[in-house]
Amino acid sequence: MPTEEKTPFDRRYIYIVLFVLISIPLLYPLNLPIPISPMSQDVWDATVALSPGDIVVHSFDFGPSTLPENEPQCSSHLFHCRELGLRVVAVAFWAAGGPLAHDIISEIYGEGYENTAAYGTEIVYIGYIPGAEVGMQTFGDSTWDAKGTDHYGTSLPDLALMQEVRSVADVTLWAEWTSGTPGEQQVIQFIQGRHQGENTDWPLVRGEHLLPIVAGSTAVSVPGMMPFYSAGQLVGILNGLAGAGEYEKLVNDVYPQYPYEQGPGLDAQSVAHILVILFVVIGNITWAISKSGGGKSS
C-alpha cells in the first residue's frame, strides 16, 4: 500500500493513540474550565434581549451525520426560548432535518407535545419545506404559501400562532442550526437581505433594520460565517461542539434543571486538539529533516 511510502510510520498507530487518548476524558472527566467565547455570548445576549411572546424561528437544517454538534446547540437554545416565554415556529429546509426536529422538540416540549394546548400557541412545527433556497425565500415572503400544513397535517391558517406569523416581518429572531446548504448564507441572502427594514423592532445595522440571525453550525463551516458575523449579518454563532458546550453552560448557570452534558466531550476535544497540534509539529519537523537529508544526498 502506498501509505507506507508516504509517511515515516504507519498512520494506523495515530488512530489508536487518538482512540485511547480521547476515551480517557470521556470515561474519567477532567472537568477543565470552559471560558465563554464572545460569539456564544452574543447568541445568549440576543436571546435574553427579547420579550416574552416574541416569535423565534428555529430552522433545523442538518442531518444525522452532524447530530453530535448540532443537537446540543439547538436543544439548549430551544430550552432557553421556552423558559423565556418566547413563541417558537420550527421549520426544516433539509429533508433529513424533518424527523430529527420532531425528536428534538419532543425532548424539550415533552413527548406528544403536538397534542397539547401549547401546540399552536407557543410552539408550531411546520416540518420539512422542500425546494431549498426557493422554499426558504417563499417561507420568508409568505409562510402559508411555503407549505400548506404543519408536520402533523394541520392547515397552517388553523393554528393561532401562524395567524400572527404571515411573513418573516413578524419574526423577532431567526435561529439557524445548520451543517451546510441551505444554511445561514441562504437565510442571509434569501430572507434577511430581501426583507431588510420591514420590521422596525429589528436592530439597526449600517442604517438598516436587519432580521437578527443567530446560527449554530458544525465547526467546519464557522470560518466561512465569520465575514457575515463581522459585518453584523449574523448576530452570534455557536461554534461546533465547543459552542454548544458553552451555551449549555450559560443555560445551566441560570436554569440548573437543564442537564449540562458537554463537559466530558469538551475535555476530550481539548485532549484531541493538543494531540493534533503535536502531530502537526512532529510532521513538520520530520518533513524538514527528510527534506534537508534529501538535499544533501542529491
Binding site: I22, L26, P68, E69, V220, P223, G240, A268
Partner: peptide, 27 residues
C-alpha cells in the same frame, strides 16, 4: 492563513463527530 484557520475549525468538527460516536458507545 485563512485556509489554516479553516483547517483548525475542521479538525475541531471532525473530533466532535468522533467524540459523539465514542460517547454513543460508552454512555
Amino acid at each position: 492563513a485563512t485556509f489554516g484557520s479553516a483547517y483548525g475549525g475542521t479538525v475541531m468538527a471532525r473530533m466532535s463527530l468522533f467524540i459523539g460516536r465514542l460517547r454513543f458507545l460508552y454512555e
